[in-house]
Design a protein around this nucleic acid. Structure first.
Length: 203
DNA sequence: TCCGCGATCCACT
DNA sequence: GTGGATCGCGGAG
């Protein structure tokens, strides 16, 4: 297992290798990157169980500029991965119980992240129902999505572009025809006016 | 060291 | 539609 917990001295070292072409959209502004992420697949292979969803709902969090971001007050042990290069997984615990998964965006040093809030099941529906302990409302919330795919703190900091990772992002190859609805982010008390929640029209 | 709150979920009405 | 559960994190003292 790869547990990437960058030390303070690593800050200026940059990314180890060029980001795959399709992942380069993540290097730009997180608000645009979040919209690009809709339709991508999130593949998981945790505990030998293969599951996958197609991302249908996301929220953008823009580090130092965004009071609602976990990185707004600067770097801590918990949010360190957000300050690194894009394409890595930021996982945090919510309300002491649930795990929530984010894709790190923007260049190293700009702490942005995209929260994955919902998706359509592509692979492993039966396994997901077993993990969730129910047959409905399987992936329609960030905590549910993590439970469905078996994502937890064990996966903090993994490379979502690495084919050997247990959790991987698979870019959509034919973007553009999808219409996107923007709205306010859910469950926050600061910067509530920013319409940085995006979902596919009709969801 | 302590205290308040939160990027949520679920059962119940 | 609403309210309770539940505990890790960060800021204050």
């Amino acid at each position: 297992m790869i547990l990437d917990s960058p030390m303070p001295g690593d800050a200026g070292r940059g990314r180890p290798e060029p980001v795959a072409p399709a992942f380069s959209v993540l290097e730009g502004d997180v608000v645009a990157a979040a919209q690009s992420l809709l339709g991508w697949r999130l593949n998981s292979e945790v505990g030998g169980i293969v599951t996958a969803i197609e991302i249908t709902e996301v929220e953008a969090y823009r580090g130092a500029d965004d009071p609602a971001s976990h990185a707004f007050r600067g770097r801590t042990d918990r949010n360190a991965v957000m300050f690194g290069p894009p394409g890595f997984l930021y996982v945090y615990r919510s309300y002491g119980l649930h795990w929530c998964a984010n894709v790190v965006a923007a260049r190293a040093g700009i702490a942005s992240a995209i929260l994955m809030r919902g998706g359509d099941i592509v692979t492993g529906r039966a396994e997901i129902e077993a993990r969730r302990g129910r047959a409905d409302h399987l992936t329609d919330g960030p905590g549910k999505l993590c439970q469905a795919l078996g994502i937890s703190g064990d996966h903090y900091g993994i490379d979502l572009a690495d084919p050997s990772s247990m959790v991987r992002l698979e870019p959509v190859t034919a973007p553009g025809s999808m219409s996107i609805v923007a709205g306010p982010r859910i469950g926050i008390s600061k910067a509530v006016e920013r319409p940085w929640r995006f979902r596919r029209a009709g969801e």
